[in-house]
Design a protein around this nucleic acid. Structure first.
Lengths: 210, 210
DNA sequence: TTTTAAATATGACTGCGGTCATAAATGACT
DNA sequence: AGTCATTTATGACCGCAGTCATATTTAAAA
């Protein structure tokens, strides 16, 4: 008896839980469709809740802001990209090439859907530092960090380098170059640009020896 | 006769011109005060126009958005900083030290008023790519660019370096490090951080020779 | 001075993100 | 089944940036 009651009470598939998941999914489904159809800026929360058949307040029970919903989509995409990186992009030998591969791979992902990337980067910038957590941006930084540490062990990266600083430098360059490229009027290959910059960082810009 | 009429018509000190300048200044004065008193986010356009004694529509005749007013303030501050740089920060010999000096100088300016910097950087990020011109962010980039070109001529920077790319790299690092520092929980010297990173870029991170 | 054209001012209004007091649904317990 | 506590849903409402049709002011022409 007690056991049965406890089971029902604590169960993950209680009616409440089911409905929550259902509503959540409905919001994802509808908003995803509307964002694609008419762009993020032009999709209002009122439209989403109308199409999803829920009240406006309900939306904000699930997502504290419209942006938090956006960031969910961005995160999804990022996680997918990173899982692919780990499997595919690290087949070369030198650290320099590995890092290039990682960045070019991410770059190519972005090149595929420039407009979408623009929207996400924009939303990300708009809200950096305002409440939302930073795990996101550190995915790339972490990957770079371990690559550089490996490089130090393998002795194709100077042992005197602060791996953390170096990783920050490279992700700074990546992010900055991405933004420049996204809003540039002239068209050029982002992959080439980033690749050239990595070479500069690896070789250094100072004349002579240290 | 004709001459007199033309003179009045084309004069810069016509009644119209006078009133325009007056209104513009009034907006600057009031908004500047309110921003300091209660923060940018908490100051509404309605408040500004009320205190300035003008209609709301008038405000938007002078500034297309609240942000454009913000950017005016940011630009003012930046121009002041840059004029100081040119006079004071370039007294060293090596290109590396010159660049460090420039960045550390700007960094120190930011360290003086962390909260204000935060607000401006935040506003800048929030609105990058949305209509407003980019001259702003390129002030630093341009200074770095000429320093690097000088360095190439003076032969303490590799002649093979693409000066434009190098300038972009350094300003990327500067901006990224600034953002990290501004929103970091732990307290550290921004100047030291940026200085160390410049060394890495100058010396390169690759082991061995190129 | 009077008329006409152009620039400028204005505030009611709109659209949208987000809040909150209240209502409905659900689960635990008897 | 009935009662009570807790979770979830809801939409009227709010604050604020930005718009627009209309009114006012200034300059030029007659």
């Amino acid at each position: 008896m007690t056991i049965v009651i406890m089971f029902q009470g604590k169960s993950d598939v209680s009616l409440r839980e089911k409905k929550k998941i259902e509503t959540r999914n409905k919001i994802f489904e509808v908003s995803g469709r509307l964002f694609k159809e008419k762009g993020i800026e032009n999709t209002t929360v009122d439209e989403i809740v109308k199409e999803a058949g829920i009240g406006k307040g309900t939306f904000f029970n699930y997502f504290p802001s419209k942006t938090s919903l956006l960031l969910y989509f961005a995160q999804q995409k990022e996680e997918l990209t990173f899982s692919q990186i780990k499997n595919e992009a690290l087949k070369t030998v030198s650290t320099r090439e590995k890092i290039k591969n990682v960045l070019v791979f991410v770059a190519k992902t972005n090149e595929l859907d420039k407009e979408l990337t623009k929207i996400f980067v924009f939303e990300y910038m708009r809200h950096y530092g305002s409440s939302l957590d930073k795990r996101k941006s550190h995915g790339l930084s972490n990957i770079l960090y371990s690559l550089i540490e490996d490089g130090i062990k393998k002795e194709d990266v100077k042992s005197t380098i602060d791996a953390k600083k170096a990783a920050q430098i490279i992700s700074a360059i990546y992010f900055h170059s991405l933004v420049e490229w996204l809003w540039s009027k002239i068209d050029y290959s982002f992959s080439d640009d980033i690749s050239g910059k990595i070479d500069i960082v690896f070789d250094g810009i100072a004349e002579g020896r240290t």
